[in-house]
Amino acid sequence: MSGHTAIRIEHLGKRFGAGPLVLEDVNLSIETGEFVCLLGASGCGKSTLLNLIAGLDQPSSGSIETPAEGSAVMFQESALMPWLTARANVELALRLRGAPRSARRREALELLDVVNLADAADKRPHELSGGMRQRVALARALAQDRPVLLMDEPFAALDAITRDLLHEELERVWRRTGRTIVFVTHNVREAARLGQRVVLLSSRPGRVAGEWRIAETTGRRIESPEVAALSIEITEQLRKEIRRNAA
């Protein structure tokens, strides 16, 4: 770890209009190259937090520092342009980034190869499976070439087998590119499987309710005992947080 802080969030609060407080006094600092999972039940404002980090929304109070280059974002829906091929979708990101025309095609193919989709470069989104679409979306996010990659439940809509594979894929890409990744999920196992750090958010209003650091992150699988053990621990805390809403 290089010890640089990539994202620093201090006393962050957010409410929409006159509505209830969605986030309250969130403090979080994320190192460069760190893989952080934001975990929480529905309504904990994790997507809101991600949008704030992405700069798609403004905080009501507190501050967020992010790298000047900005962040790449990946959503739950792949949101690929349906009229463009996989390659053209990646090229669009390169183009909007300002990459020179001559390099776009080659670079797009390289990025698709990173997610093992070089063969499907000329297919359109509707010809791809859900997992393949998310991999194209990942390639597109990588094409943005930003130091931070924000992921909003990107694998939530996939079947378990595909999700497992994409976990491995994402881990590989992360190790290879050294991106700072903030991964939002409501799946405890997914968080325990992927993160170097798992941050639990409480609900209504969302605030940091717990944090776990994982020392050894190589060779983890969704079925690994250490992942299971951590999941149990986190789930316990999560349930405690949820129960508090019953009163």
Binding site: G33, E110, V114, R175
Partner: peptide
Amino acid sequence: MPHEDDSGSAGRVATKERIETAD
């Protein structure tokens, strides 16, 4: 195309370099 990982235990270098230069 380089497909090799920076082997995780050998220490990942956090850089802003692009994929093809990560070697």
